[in-house]
Design a protein around this nucleic acid. Structure first.
Lengths: 306, 306
DNA sequence: CTGATCCATAAGGCTGCCTTATGGCAGCCA
DNA sequence: TGGCTGCCATAAGGCAGCCTTATGGATCAG
């Protein structure tokens, strides 16, 4: 394969051929006329034949120049289109990899507001339970659970991974719930969830056995919460997923006790891409949404056992 | 029009994408792996998104890289083809602009030998009476008449522009030609040629009048010479155009007197292209052909009046 | 004849790019 | 398991390629 002449020279030629003018080409390329003249001279020396005929006050392509110019311009046009496409995609497509829980319980319902704020950003969401490696997969933003120490990643804490039982106020109206164990009198939604055991343990109720209770396994906390609001029972949920319902009283916490894992939800992205406008836009939006959320009451927190 | 990223970076990307390896790309481009890494980093920063995923022991294109690579490779392939075509044409096509006389009386008949010597060089001949400006028209070599002082052009003197009467030996067999004026007893081919007047003047024969003689105006000296060889009369020709015929005696010079203009035939080409192999080949061939020609006798020369 | 325009050329400086050197990482092989 | 190897990242440093500035020539417009 014959080696190409220096790219900068080809580029100068392409612009000069299009404009039929070194001066105009220099303007387009953001350099001086002398530089274009130099580059084209370079290319002509390399090829071994003149590409431009120098006439007073203008230049014309020689026959060889005319032979070369269309192909070169075409190639550059293809490059321009390709890079414009990429740059456009980079600017307007925001790809997010997120945990299922965060997607279904928080993100999906609010994404519309983000899109209204930034109608020119198209959001692509990939839901995945395993933490993706930004070095392996090319995502802009990730939502993940952990302790926040990922090297090379900028991490913003969203909210803790914590749980507390909630139910509809109607379900317990007139009931006297003095102790956590009183909850056992009520229907338990998804009793197989290990958080139930952890919560009762933290509440001082040991060795409860929920195994004989009917288990619906609704799958997403969002559904648990909805079932709870419908008065079907007590759900073990992360209150951060239901700030509005808790604030409005559609859901109530019979006990303040909240059990918290040492892992939190984090929004992360590569440190190197901190300046990307779309990343900033999404990060700022998520953080402001959450700031709005936590204007609900801050519950008492107990740390879960490892 | 969005500005393209630096060409050197695009080039590095193209090679790296093809090889799926920075090291291999560096080899192809004749630089180090570090340089390729630097250039690709540059491009990624410019675009604002990674193009390669760095994995242990190899790299892979990201989705955006995969989107970009084919278009870029295609564009470069087009450039490679275009430049290969030009370089091939420059190497193998030799374009000559030549005076009509030289073409018809000297060059055409001998060109076959040059092509045998250099079968890979295609010769393009443009015949033109006016001197072309190498700055205006893109010729490799010119044959022109003059004094040899053309700025910017390398000039090789081929032979003088000189004339002398010649005829077939049969035409004058048994005749006694003592003085130049004796030629007037013979048929004069193309008596309207001003060289006749000049020659007779140089020979001391003043005020001849050839205007009443039949004028065939054969047009090319080659035809004049052929007519003379056929015994049809005396032709005024440049002996350098008939070295072989004069050497073999098919044409004879009744008088040694040769009239010479102050202009000669020159082979010229731009000084800047002195190193071009095809130009060297043609120049050397022409000069050696002429050196072979002038092994004929050197005639006595008189300078023509201005 | 003067000014404007466009290109060529020379001189000079700077910075962009490349090289060298080193380190990390992971697969490979014994 | 541990050394070896292949591949890439990164830092430091230097050099030359390239660009700018300045000037001149040529031509055209007015």
């Amino acid at each position: 394969m014959s080696k190409l002449p220096p790219m900068s020279a080809i580029r100068a030629f392409e612009a000069a051929a299009r404009h039929q003018s070194f001066t105009r080409a220099a303007e387009e390329l953001g350099m001086t006329q002398a530089a274009v003249s130099y580059q084209i001279r370079l290319l002509e020396d390399r090829i071994g034949a003149p590409l431009f005929v120098r006439l007073p006050r203008h230049v014309e392509l020689t026959s060889r120049g005319r032979q070369l110019a269309p192909a070169v311009t075409e190639a550059f046009e293809a490059l321009r289109i390709a890079f414009a496409g990429i740059e456009n995609a980079v600017r307007t497509v925001l790809s997010i990899t997120t945990l299922t829980t965060f997607a279904s319980n928080w993100l999906i319902a609010r994404l519309g507001r983000f899109q209204q704020l930034h109608p020119n950003i198209a959001v692509q969401i990939e839901v995945s339970q395993q933490i993706v490696d930004f070095a392996h997969d090319d995502f802009d933003i990730g939502i993940r659970s952990g302790t926040g120490d990922w090297p090379g990643l900028e991490a913003h804490r969203l909210f803790p991974n914590q749980f507390t039982p909630v139910c509809s106020p109607d379900l317990i109206r007139g009931m006297e719930l003095r102790e956590p164990s009183d909850l056992l009198k009520l229907p338990i939604l998804t009793p197989s969830d290990p958080w139930w055991r952890d919560w009762f343990t933290a509440a001082g109720v040991k060795d409860i056995d929920l195994s004989d209770r009917p288990d619906n396994s609704l799958g997403a906390q969002q559904f648990e919460g909805m079932a709870a609001m419908a008065g079907q029972g007590v759900a073990m949920i992360n209150p951060f997923f239901f700030p509005a319902d808790l604030a409005a009283g559609r859901l109530v916490q019979p006990f303040d006790l909240v059990v918290e894992a040492d892992r939190s939800y984090w929004l992360v992205y590569p440190k190197a891409r901190k300046r990307s406008p779309k990343i900033q836009a999404f990060r700022d939006w998520v953080l402001s949404e959450i700031a709005g959320d936590v204007e609900t009451t801050a519950p008492r927190v107990n740390r879960a056992e490892a």
